[in-house]
Design a binder for these strands. Structure first.
Lengths: 249, 249
DNA sequence: ACATGCGATATTTTCGAAAGCAATACGTCT
DNA sequence: AGACGTATTGCTTTCGAAAATATCGCATGT
Protein backbone atom coordinates (compact mmCIF):
# COMPACT_ATOMS: atom_id res chain seq x y z
CA UNK A 1 0.00 0.00 0.00
CA UNK A 2 1.86 3.01 1.17
CA UNK A 3 5.42 2.36 0.15
CA UNK A 4 6.87 5.69 1.18
CA UNK A 5 9.19 5.31 4.14
CA UNK A 6 9.49 1.62 4.72
CA UNK A 7 13.13 1.14 5.35
CA UNK A 8 13.71 4.48 6.94
CA UNK A 9 14.69 4.93 10.57
CA UNK A 10 11.75 5.20 12.90
CA UNK A 11 13.06 8.61 13.99
CA UNK A 12 12.36 8.05 17.64
CA UNK A 13 9.01 9.10 19.02
CA UNK A 14 8.13 11.51 16.28
CA UNK A 15 4.98 10.20 14.74
CA UNK A 16 3.87 10.70 11.20
CA UNK A 17 0.84 12.67 12.33
CA UNK A 18 3.03 15.17 14.15
CA UNK A 19 5.14 15.35 11.03
CA UNK A 20 2.11 16.52 9.17
CA UNK A 21 1.22 13.20 7.62
CA UNK A 22 -1.37 13.28 4.94
CA UNK A 23 -3.79 10.53 4.25
CA UNK A 24 -4.45 9.60 0.66
CA UNK A 25 -8.01 10.81 1.14
CA UNK A 26 -6.65 14.27 1.82
CA UNK A 27 -4.47 14.12 -1.26
CA UNK A 28 -7.46 13.11 -3.31
CA UNK A 29 -9.47 15.93 -1.81
CA UNK A 30 -6.92 18.60 -2.62
CA UNK A 31 -6.17 17.39 -6.11
CA UNK A 32 -9.80 16.92 -7.06
CA UNK A 33 -10.71 20.35 -5.75
CA UNK A 34 -7.83 21.87 -7.61
CA UNK A 35 -8.86 20.24 -10.87
CA UNK A 36 -12.53 21.11 -10.51
CA UNK A 37 -11.80 24.74 -9.71
CA UNK A 38 -9.44 25.00 -12.64
CA UNK A 39 -12.03 23.48 -14.93
CA UNK A 40 -9.96 20.46 -15.82
CA UNK A 41 -13.31 18.71 -15.73
CA UNK A 42 -16.30 20.18 -17.48
CA UNK A 43 -19.10 21.31 -15.18
CA UNK A 44 -21.76 18.62 -15.09
CA UNK A 45 -19.34 15.96 -16.22
CA UNK A 46 -19.78 12.59 -14.49
CA UNK A 47 -16.76 11.70 -12.41
CA UNK A 48 -16.27 8.03 -13.16
CA UNK A 49 -14.32 6.38 -10.41
CA UNK A 50 -12.30 4.29 -12.82
CA UNK A 51 -11.12 7.47 -14.53
CA UNK A 52 -10.20 9.17 -11.25
CA UNK A 53 -8.45 6.03 -10.10
CA UNK A 54 -6.21 6.15 -13.14
CA UNK A 55 -5.72 9.88 -13.13
CA UNK A 56 -4.62 10.12 -9.52
CA UNK A 57 -3.27 6.64 -8.98
CA UNK A 58 -5.53 6.13 -5.99
CA UNK A 59 -8.07 3.54 -5.02
CA UNK A 60 -11.83 3.82 -4.54
CA UNK A 61 -11.88 4.49 -0.82
CA UNK A 62 -9.85 7.71 -0.63
CA UNK A 63 -11.54 8.99 -3.79
CA UNK A 64 -15.00 8.42 -2.41
CA UNK A 65 -14.10 10.13 0.84
CA UNK A 66 -12.83 13.13 -1.04
CA UNK A 67 -15.91 13.26 -3.25
CA UNK A 68 -18.17 13.16 -0.23
CA UNK A 69 -16.38 16.12 1.26
CA UNK A 70 -16.48 18.04 -2.00
CA UNK A 71 -20.16 17.37 -2.25
CA UNK A 72 -20.71 19.25 1.00
CA UNK A 73 -18.76 22.15 -0.52
CA UNK A 74 -21.01 22.24 -3.57
CA UNK A 75 -18.19 21.45 -5.97
CA UNK A 76 -19.57 17.99 -6.63
CA UNK A 77 -23.12 16.70 -6.84
CA UNK A 78 -24.27 13.15 -6.43
CA UNK A 79 -27.38 11.20 -7.38
CA UNK A 80 -28.42 8.21 -5.33
CA UNK A 81 -26.90 5.26 -7.13
CA UNK A 82 -25.56 7.07 -10.13
CA UNK A 83 -22.28 8.34 -8.78
CA UNK A 84 -20.75 11.78 -8.66
CA UNK A 85 -20.58 14.65 -11.13
CA UNK A 86 -18.87 17.99 -11.24
CA UNK A 87 -21.33 20.54 -9.92
CA UNK A 88 -22.89 22.43 -12.83
CA UNK A 89 -22.32 26.14 -13.19
CA UNK A 90 -24.90 28.77 -13.95
CA UNK A 91 -25.34 32.49 -13.66
CA UNK A 92 -27.87 31.98 -10.87
CA UNK A 93 -25.44 29.86 -8.88
CA UNK A 94 -22.70 32.39 -9.40
CA UNK A 95 -24.84 35.20 -8.05
CA UNK A 96 -26.02 33.17 -5.10
CA UNK A 97 -22.41 32.40 -4.22
CA UNK A 98 -21.41 36.01 -4.76
CA UNK A 99 -24.15 37.54 -2.64
CA UNK A 100 -23.62 34.99 0.11
CA UNK A 101 -19.94 35.75 0.05
CA UNK A 102 -20.68 39.45 0.34
CA UNK A 103 -22.91 38.84 3.33
CA UNK A 104 -20.26 36.76 5.07
CA UNK A 105 -17.21 38.83 4.23
CA UNK A 106 -18.73 42.22 4.92
CA UNK A 107 -19.71 41.08 8.39
CA UNK A 108 -16.28 39.53 8.91
CA UNK A 109 -14.59 42.69 7.69
CA UNK A 110 -16.54 44.88 10.09
CA UNK A 111 -15.66 42.62 12.98
CA UNK A 112 -12.02 42.58 11.92
CA UNK A 113 -12.02 46.35 11.90
CA UNK A 114 -13.31 46.28 15.47
CA UNK A 115 -10.80 43.69 16.67
CA UNK A 116 -7.78 44.27 14.49
CA UNK A 117 -4.47 45.21 16.05
CA UNK A 118 -1.10 46.27 14.67
CA UNK A 119 -0.31 42.81 13.37
CA UNK A 120 -3.58 42.78 11.48
CA UNK A 121 -2.79 46.10 9.82
CA UNK A 122 0.71 44.95 8.99
CA UNK A 123 -0.60 41.79 7.33
CA UNK A 124 -3.02 43.79 5.22
CA UNK A 125 -0.35 46.21 4.06
CA UNK A 126 2.07 43.40 3.39
CA UNK A 127 -0.33 41.18 1.43
CA UNK A 128 -1.58 44.15 -0.54
CA UNK A 129 1.94 45.03 -1.49
CA UNK A 130 2.72 41.49 -2.58
CA UNK A 131 -0.43 41.40 -4.66
CA UNK A 132 0.31 44.75 -6.19
CA UNK A 133 3.83 43.68 -7.13
CA UNK A 134 2.56 40.56 -8.81
CA UNK A 135 -0.06 42.50 -10.77
CA UNK A 136 2.54 44.96 -12.04
CA UNK A 137 4.93 42.16 -12.89
CA UNK A 138 2.27 40.53 -15.01
CA UNK A 139 1.23 43.80 -16.61
CA UNK A 140 4.77 44.48 -17.71
CA UNK A 141 5.08 41.27 -19.68
CA UNK A 142 1.47 40.81 -20.68
CA UNK A 143 0.66 38.31 -23.39
CA UNK A 144 3.16 35.74 -22.18
CA UNK A 145 1.79 34.86 -18.77
CA UNK A 146 3.07 31.61 -17.42
CA UNK A 147 0.77 29.37 -15.41
CA UNK A 148 3.08 29.98 -12.48
CA UNK A 149 2.29 33.67 -12.72
CA UNK A 150 -1.42 33.01 -12.73
CA UNK A 151 -1.07 30.69 -9.74
CA UNK A 152 0.97 33.30 -7.89
CA UNK A 153 -1.60 35.96 -8.64
CA UNK A 154 -4.35 33.76 -7.29
CA UNK A 155 -2.35 33.11 -4.12
CA UNK A 156 -1.61 36.77 -3.46
CA UNK A 157 -5.17 37.71 -4.19
CA UNK A 158 -6.49 35.12 -1.79
CA UNK A 159 -4.01 36.14 0.89
CA UNK A 160 -4.98 39.78 0.68
CA UNK A 161 -8.68 39.10 0.98
CA UNK A 162 -8.00 36.68 3.80
CA UNK A 163 -5.92 39.24 5.69
CA UNK A 164 -8.81 41.69 5.67
CA UNK A 165 -11.15 39.40 7.56
CA UNK A 166 -8.63 37.33 9.51
CA UNK A 167 -9.32 39.09 12.79
CA UNK A 168 -13.10 38.75 12.78
CA UNK A 169 -12.86 36.26 15.61
CA UNK A 170 -15.16 33.69 14.03
CA UNK A 171 -13.80 30.41 12.74
CA UNK A 172 -17.10 29.86 10.92
CA UNK A 173 -17.05 33.12 9.03
CA UNK A 174 -13.49 32.55 7.91
CA UNK A 175 -14.19 29.01 6.76
CA UNK A 176 -17.31 30.08 4.93
CA UNK A 177 -15.38 32.85 3.24
CA UNK A 178 -12.73 30.38 2.12
CA UNK A 179 -15.34 28.01 0.82
CA UNK A 180 -17.13 30.71 -1.12
CA UNK A 181 -13.81 31.95 -2.44
CA UNK A 182 -13.21 28.52 -3.91
CA UNK A 183 -16.71 28.29 -5.33
CA UNK A 184 -16.49 31.64 -7.07
CA UNK A 185 -13.01 30.85 -8.29
CA UNK A 186 -14.57 28.45 -10.77
CA UNK A 187 -16.25 31.40 -12.41
CA UNK A 188 -13.40 33.85 -12.12
CA UNK A 189 -10.59 31.76 -13.53
CA UNK A 190 -11.86 31.22 -17.09
CA UNK A 191 -12.45 34.94 -17.46
CA UNK A 192 -9.10 35.71 -15.91
CA UNK A 193 -7.07 33.52 -18.22
CA UNK A 194 -9.24 34.24 -21.22
CA UNK A 195 -9.17 37.56 -22.98
CA UNK A 196 -9.46 40.48 -20.64
CA UNK A 197 -11.88 42.74 -22.47
CA UNK A 198 -9.69 45.78 -21.83
CA UNK A 199 -12.26 46.67 -19.26
CA UNK A 200 -12.31 50.13 -17.84
CA UNK A 201 -11.53 48.61 -14.51
CA UNK A 202 -8.65 49.41 -12.22
CA UNK A 203 -8.55 46.45 -9.87
CA UNK A 204 -5.41 47.48 -7.97
CA UNK A 205 -7.12 50.76 -7.27
CA UNK A 206 -10.23 49.00 -5.96
CA UNK A 207 -8.04 46.93 -3.66
CA UNK A 208 -6.24 50.01 -2.44
CA UNK A 209 -9.47 51.80 -1.66
CA UNK A 210 -10.73 48.81 0.29
CA UNK A 211 -7.46 48.72 2.21
CA UNK A 212 -7.50 52.44 2.93
CA UNK A 213 -11.05 52.46 4.22
CA UNK A 214 -10.28 49.39 6.30
CA UNK A 215 -7.12 50.75 7.89
CA UNK A 216 -8.91 54.04 8.57
CA UNK A 217 -11.52 51.93 10.37
CA UNK A 218 -14.34 53.24 8.25
CA UNK A 219 -16.38 50.05 8.56
CA UNK A 220 -19.39 50.84 6.46
CA UNK A 221 -17.41 52.36 3.65
CA UNK A 222 -14.99 49.44 3.58
CA UNK A 223 -17.84 46.96 3.46
CA UNK A 224 -19.54 48.90 0.67
CA UNK A 225 -16.35 48.94 -1.36
CA UNK A 226 -15.78 45.24 -0.82
CA UNK A 227 -19.33 44.41 -1.89
CA UNK A 228 -19.05 46.61 -4.96
CA UNK A 229 -15.73 44.95 -5.79
CA UNK A 230 -17.29 41.49 -5.79
CA UNK A 231 -20.43 42.56 -7.61
CA UNK A 232 -18.43 44.23 -10.33
CA UNK A 233 -16.48 41.05 -10.91
CA UNK A 234 -19.63 38.98 -11.11
CA UNK A 235 -21.23 41.43 -13.52
CA UNK A 236 -18.27 41.20 -15.85
CA UNK A 237 -18.33 37.43 -15.66
CA UNK A 238 -22.04 37.42 -16.32
CA UNK A 239 -21.74 39.48 -19.47
CA UNK A 240 -18.78 37.44 -20.64
CA UNK A 241 -20.76 34.24 -20.00
CA UNK A 242 -23.90 35.36 -21.81
CA UNK A 243 -21.97 37.30 -24.43
CA UNK A 244 -20.09 34.40 -25.92
CA UNK A 245 -22.20 31.45 -24.89
CA UNK A 246 -19.04 29.74 -23.77
CA UNK A 247 -19.35 28.38 -20.29
CA UNK A 248 -23.07 28.77 -19.79
CA UNK A 249 -24.42 25.58 -18.32
CA UNK B 1 -24.55 -7.27 1.04
CA UNK B 2 -27.89 -5.58 0.59
CA UNK B 3 -30.46 -8.26 1.29
CA UNK B 4 -33.49 -6.03 1.16
CA UNK B 5 -35.60 -6.81 -1.87
CA UNK B 6 -34.04 -9.80 -3.49
CA UNK B 7 -36.96 -11.96 -4.33
CA UNK B 8 -39.39 -9.13 -4.85
CA UNK B 9 -40.92 -8.31 -8.21
CA UNK B 10 -38.88 -5.90 -10.21
CA UNK B 11 -41.87 -3.57 -10.35
CA UNK B 12 -41.45 -2.76 -14.00
CA UNK B 13 -39.26 0.11 -14.99
CA UNK B 14 -39.38 1.91 -11.69
CA UNK B 15 -35.80 2.06 -10.51
CA UNK B 16 -34.66 2.18 -6.96
CA UNK B 17 -33.27 5.66 -7.41
CA UNK B 18 -36.61 6.95 -8.57
CA UNK B 19 -38.16 5.20 -5.60
CA UNK B 20 -35.97 7.28 -3.37
CA UNK B 21 -33.32 4.68 -2.82
CA UNK B 22 -30.94 5.35 -0.01
CA UNK B 23 -27.39 4.22 0.07
CA UNK B 24 -26.02 2.81 3.29
CA UNK B 25 -23.73 5.81 3.45
CA UNK B 26 -26.78 8.02 3.69
CA UNK B 27 -28.27 5.86 6.40
CA UNK B 28 -25.03 6.08 8.32
CA UNK B 29 -24.98 9.84 7.84
CA UNK B 30 -28.50 10.37 9.15
CA UNK B 31 -28.18 8.02 12.08
CA UNK B 32 -24.80 9.31 13.15
CA UNK B 33 -25.98 12.89 12.95
CA UNK B 34 -29.09 12.04 14.92
CA UNK B 35 -27.05 10.39 17.64
CA UNK B 36 -24.48 13.14 17.85
CA UNK B 37 -27.11 15.87 18.03
CA UNK B 38 -28.98 13.99 20.73
CA UNK B 39 -25.81 13.54 22.70
CA UNK B 40 -25.86 9.77 22.53
CA UNK B 41 -22.11 10.19 22.25
CA UNK B 42 -20.23 12.47 24.58
CA UNK B 43 -18.68 15.51 22.94
CA UNK B 44 -15.02 14.81 22.31
CA UNK B 45 -15.53 11.07 22.44
CA UNK B 46 -13.52 9.12 19.88
CA UNK B 47 -15.74 7.37 17.38
CA UNK B 48 -14.11 3.99 17.03
CA UNK B 49 -15.07 2.39 13.78
CA UNK B 50 -15.47 -1.02 15.34
CA UNK B 51 -18.02 0.40 17.75
CA UNK B 52 -19.98 2.17 15.03
CA UNK B 53 -19.86 -0.94 12.88
CA UNK B 54 -21.54 -2.90 15.63
CA UNK B 55 -23.97 -0.19 16.65
CA UNK B 56 -25.33 0.43 13.16
CA UNK B 57 -24.63 -2.90 11.55
CA UNK B 58 -22.70 -1.27 8.75
CA UNK B 59 -19.27 -1.67 7.31
CA UNK B 60 -16.30 0.67 7.21
CA UNK B 61 -16.93 2.27 3.86
CA UNK B 62 -20.35 3.83 4.41
CA UNK B 63 -19.36 4.84 7.93
CA UNK B 64 -16.26 6.63 6.76
CA UNK B 65 -18.20 8.42 4.05
CA UNK B 66 -20.74 9.60 6.58
CA UNK B 67 -18.03 10.73 9.00
CA UNK B 68 -16.32 12.70 6.26
CA UNK B 69 -19.53 14.53 5.53
CA UNK B 70 -20.22 15.19 9.19
CA UNK B 71 -16.74 16.56 9.54
CA UNK B 72 -17.56 19.26 7.01
CA UNK B 73 -20.62 20.10 9.11
CA UNK B 74 -18.56 20.51 12.27
CA UNK B 75 -20.28 17.70 14.09
CA UNK B 76 -17.23 15.50 13.86
CA UNK B 77 -13.54 16.30 14.00
CA UNK B 78 -10.68 14.23 12.71
CA UNK B 79 -6.94 14.07 13.26
CA UNK B 80 -4.65 12.77 10.58
CA UNK B 81 -4.23 9.09 11.39
CA UNK B 82 -6.06 9.06 14.66
CA UNK B 83 -9.59 8.66 13.44
CA UNK B 84 -12.75 10.62 14.15
CA UNK B 85 -14.21 12.12 17.30
CA UNK B 86 -17.42 13.84 18.21
CA UNK B 87 -16.84 17.57 17.88
CA UNK B 88 -16.30 19.08 21.32
CA UNK B 89 -18.75 21.63 22.64
CA UNK B 90 -17.91 24.91 24.32
CA UNK B 91 -19.57 28.18 25.11
CA UNK B 92 -17.39 29.91 22.52
CA UNK B 93 -18.47 27.48 19.81
CA UNK B 94 -22.08 27.88 20.78
CA UNK B 95 -21.88 31.64 20.48
CA UNK B 96 -20.06 31.48 17.17
CA UNK B 97 -22.75 29.18 15.81
CA UNK B 98 -25.48 31.37 17.26
CA UNK B 99 -24.18 34.65 15.88
CA UNK B 100 -23.49 33.12 12.49
CA UNK B 101 -26.98 31.73 12.47
CA UNK B 102 -28.36 35.16 13.29
CA UNK B 103 -26.41 36.70 10.43
CA UNK B 104 -27.68 34.11 7.97
CA UNK B 105 -31.26 33.88 9.10
CA UNK B 106 -31.86 37.59 9.52
CA UNK B 107 -30.72 38.18 5.98
CA UNK B 108 -32.81 35.26 4.74
CA UNK B 109 -35.82 36.53 6.65
CA UNK B 110 -35.55 39.99 5.15
CA UNK B 111 -35.33 38.54 1.67
CA UNK B 112 -38.27 36.26 2.37
CA UNK B 113 -40.30 39.27 3.45
CA UNK B 114 -39.46 40.89 0.13
CA UNK B 115 -40.28 37.82 -1.96
CA UNK B 116 -42.95 36.06 0.06
CA UNK B 117 -46.37 35.48 -1.48
CA UNK B 118 -49.65 34.14 -0.13
CA UNK B 119 -48.36 30.59 0.09
CA UNK B 120 -45.45 31.80 2.13
CA UNK B 121 -47.74 33.55 4.60
CA UNK B 122 -50.01 30.52 4.78
CA UNK B 123 -47.08 28.25 5.59
CA UNK B 124 -45.94 30.54 8.37
CA UNK B 125 -49.37 30.73 9.94
CA UNK B 126 -49.84 27.00 9.59
CA UNK B 127 -46.49 25.96 11.04
CA UNK B 128 -46.85 28.44 13.86
CA UNK B 129 -50.21 27.00 14.73
CA UNK B 130 -48.88 23.44 14.71
CA UNK B 131 -46.00 24.48 16.93
CA UNK B 132 -48.30 26.33 19.29
CA UNK B 133 -50.61 23.33 19.59
CA UNK B 134 -47.71 21.04 20.42
CA UNK B 135 -46.40 23.44 23.05
CA UNK B 136 -49.80 23.65 24.74
CA UNK B 137 -50.24 19.90 24.57
CA UNK B 138 -46.97 19.44 26.36
CA UNK B 139 -47.69 22.14 28.88
CA UNK B 140 -50.96 20.46 29.86
CA UNK B 141 -49.31 17.20 30.80
CA UNK B 142 -45.97 18.49 31.92
CA UNK B 143 -43.69 16.19 33.84
CA UNK B 144 -44.54 13.12 31.80
CA UNK B 145 -43.20 14.14 28.39
CA UNK B 146 -42.66 11.22 26.09
CA UNK B 147 -39.71 11.24 23.75
CA UNK B 148 -42.21 11.32 20.92
CA UNK B 149 -43.50 14.63 22.24
CA UNK B 150 -40.03 16.07 22.39
CA UNK B 151 -39.33 14.88 18.85
CA UNK B 152 -42.60 16.37 17.62
CA UNK B 153 -41.80 19.66 19.31
CA UNK B 154 -38.42 19.75 17.63
CA UNK B 155 -40.02 19.06 14.26
CA UNK B 156 -42.68 21.76 14.59
CA UNK B 157 -40.09 24.21 15.86
CA UNK B 158 -37.81 23.51 12.94
CA UNK B 159 -40.65 23.75 10.45
CA UNK B 160 -41.76 27.12 11.76
CA UNK B 161 -38.32 28.63 11.59
CA UNK B 162 -37.85 27.14 8.16
CA UNK B 163 -41.11 28.59 6.87
CA UNK B 164 -39.99 32.09 7.84
CA UNK B 165 -36.95 32.03 5.58
CA UNK B 166 -38.12 29.59 2.92
CA UNK B 167 -38.77 32.27 0.33
CA UNK B 168 -35.41 34.02 0.57
CA UNK B 169 -34.50 32.69 -2.86
CA UNK B 170 -31.05 31.44 -1.88
CA UNK B 171 -30.33 27.73 -1.67
CA UNK B 172 -27.12 28.55 0.18
CA UNK B 173 -28.74 30.59 2.91
CA UNK B 174 -31.34 27.90 3.52
CA UNK B 175 -28.76 25.14 3.67
CA UNK B 176 -26.56 27.15 6.00
CA UNK B 177 -29.53 27.86 8.23
CA UNK B 178 -30.34 24.15 8.37
CA UNK B 179 -26.77 23.31 9.17
CA UNK B 180 -26.55 25.87 11.94
CA UNK B 181 -29.89 24.72 13.26
CA UNK B 182 -28.43 21.25 13.66
CA UNK B 183 -25.26 22.55 15.24
CA UNK B 184 -27.08 24.62 17.83
CA UNK B 185 -29.50 21.78 18.49
CA UNK B 186 -26.69 20.01 20.32
CA UNK B 187 -26.72 22.81 22.85
CA UNK B 188 -30.47 23.33 23.04
CA UNK B 189 -31.57 19.75 23.56
CA UNK B 190 -29.92 19.01 26.90
CA UNK B 191 -31.38 22.18 28.36
CA UNK B 192 -34.75 21.42 26.83
CA UNK B 193 -35.06 17.93 28.24
CA UNK B 194 -33.38 18.82 31.48
CA UNK B 195 -35.08 20.91 34.10
CA UNK B 196 -36.58 24.05 32.70
CA UNK B 197 -35.61 26.62 35.31
CA UNK B 198 -39.14 28.03 35.30
CA UNK B 199 -37.68 30.87 33.36
CA UNK B 200 -39.59 34.04 32.99
CA UNK B 201 -39.73 33.39 29.32
CA UNK B 202 -42.76 33.13 27.10
CA UNK B 203 -41.45 31.39 24.02
CA UNK B 204 -44.80 31.07 22.22
CA UNK B 205 -45.17 34.79 22.61
CA UNK B 206 -41.72 35.40 21.12
CA UNK B 207 -42.65 33.24 18.18
CA UNK B 208 -45.93 35.06 17.73
CA UNK B 209 -44.23 38.44 17.74
CA UNK B 210 -41.73 37.28 15.14
CA UNK B 211 -44.58 36.00 13.00
CA UNK B 212 -46.61 39.19 13.38
CA UNK B 213 -43.74 41.47 12.43
CA UNK B 214 -42.92 39.19 9.51
CA UNK B 215 -46.43 39.03 8.11
CA UNK B 216 -46.74 42.80 8.54
CA UNK B 217 -43.57 43.01 6.43
CA UNK B 218 -41.71 44.97 9.07
CA UNK B 219 -38.31 43.60 8.04
CA UNK B 220 -36.02 45.24 10.52
CA UNK B 221 -38.27 44.60 13.47
CA UNK B 222 -38.74 40.97 12.51
CA UNK B 223 -35.01 40.47 12.17
CA UNK B 224 -34.39 42.15 15.53
CA UNK B 225 -36.93 39.92 17.21
CA UNK B 226 -35.46 36.81 15.61
CA UNK B 227 -31.96 37.74 16.69
CA UNK B 228 -33.12 38.49 20.23
CA UNK B 229 -34.93 35.16 20.29
CA UNK B 230 -31.78 33.23 19.44
CA UNK B 231 -29.56 35.25 21.76
CA UNK B 232 -31.92 34.76 24.66
CA UNK B 233 -31.80 31.01 24.14
CA UNK B 234 -28.02 31.00 24.03
CA UNK B 235 -27.80 33.14 27.14
CA UNK B 236 -29.97 30.72 29.07
CA UNK B 237 -27.92 27.80 27.83
CA UNK B 238 -24.73 29.59 28.78
CA UNK B 239 -25.83 30.19 32.34
CA UNK B 240 -27.11 26.65 32.63
CA UNK B 241 -23.81 25.35 31.30
CA UNK B 242 -21.63 27.39 33.59
CA UNK B 243 -24.06 27.15 36.51
CA UNK B 244 -23.97 23.43 36.93
CA UNK B 245 -20.73 22.47 35.31
CA UNK B 246 -22.57 19.74 33.46
CA UNK B 247 -21.79 19.81 29.80
CA UNK B 248 -18.95 22.25 29.77
CA UNK B 249 -16.21 20.85 27.60
C1' DA C 1 14.14 6.76 39.69
C1' DC C 2 13.89 8.43 35.01
C1' DA C 3 14.43 8.54 30.32
C1' DT C 4 14.90 5.84 26.07
C1' DG C 5 14.32 2.41 22.90
C1' DC C 6 11.84 -1.81 21.59
C1' DG C 7 7.87 -4.99 21.01
C1' DA C 8 2.97 -6.01 21.12
C1' DT C 9 -1.60 -4.53 20.47
C1' DA C 10 -5.35 -1.61 18.91
C1' DT C 11 -7.00 1.30 15.29
C1' DT C 12 -7.07 3.62 11.17
C1' DT C 13 -6.51 3.64 6.39
C1' DT C 14 -6.27 1.52 2.01
C1' DC C 15 -6.96 -1.93 -1.33
C1' DG C 16 -9.08 -5.34 -4.57
C1' DA C 17 -12.84 -8.01 -5.29
C1' DA C 18 -17.73 -9.16 -4.88
C1' DA C 19 -22.42 -7.68 -4.99
C1' DG C 20 -26.01 -4.74 -6.37
C1' DC C 21 -28.22 -1.30 -9.52
C1' DA C 22 -28.99 1.39 -13.80
C1' DA C 23 -28.84 1.78 -18.63
C1' DT C 24 -28.83 -0.18 -22.83
C1' DA C 25 -29.44 -3.59 -26.36
C1' DC C 26 -31.89 -7.42 -27.69
C1' DG C 27 -35.55 -10.56 -28.47
C1' DT C 28 -40.34 -11.91 -28.10
C1' DC C 29 -45.13 -11.29 -28.27
C1' DT C 30 -49.28 -8.90 -29.71
C1' DA D 1 -44.30 -2.19 -36.34
C1' DG D 2 -44.59 -1.20 -31.47
C1' DA D 3 -44.65 -2.35 -26.69
C1' DC D 4 -43.14 -5.08 -23.20
C1' DG D 5 -40.19 -7.85 -20.82
C1' DT D 6 -35.38 -9.85 -20.40
C1' DA D 7 -30.29 -10.48 -20.69
C1' DT D 8 -26.01 -7.90 -20.97
C1' DT D 9 -22.92 -4.52 -19.77
C1' DG D 10 -20.88 -0.89 -17.11
C1' DC D 11 -20.87 1.49 -13.15
C1' DT D 12 -21.51 2.33 -8.21
C1' DT D 13 -21.57 0.74 -3.76
C1' DT D 14 -20.27 -2.29 -0.17
C1' DC D 15 -17.54 -5.59 2.09
C1' DG D 16 -13.70 -7.99 4.49
C1' DA D 17 -9.01 -8.42 4.70
C1' DA D 18 -4.27 -6.53 4.35
C1' DA D 19 -1.09 -2.85 5.22
C1' DA D 20 0.37 1.12 7.68
C1' DT D 21 0.37 3.72 11.70
C1' DA D 22 -0.37 5.08 16.57
C1' DT D 23 -0.43 3.73 21.34
C1' DC D 24 0.66 1.40 25.25
C1' DG D 25 3.50 -1.51 28.17
C1' DC D 26 7.89 -3.33 29.19
C1' DA D 27 12.52 -3.83 29.60
C1' DT D 28 17.07 -1.84 29.64
C1' DG D 29 20.51 1.28 30.63
C1' DT D 30 22.16 5.50 32.90
Amino acid sequence: MRTGNVGQPKSGTISAAQNGAETLAEVAYRRLREDIVHNVFTPGQPLRLELLKQRYGLSFSPLREALNRLQMERLVVTAALRGFSVAPVSIEEMWDATETRILIECEALKRSIRNGDDDWEAAIVSTFHALDLQVRRMERRAGELSSDDVAALESRHKEFHHALIAYCGSRRLIDLANQLYTETQRYRLPTLTGENPATSRDIPREHREIMDATLARRSDEAAELLAAHYRKTSELIESSMSGDGAAVA
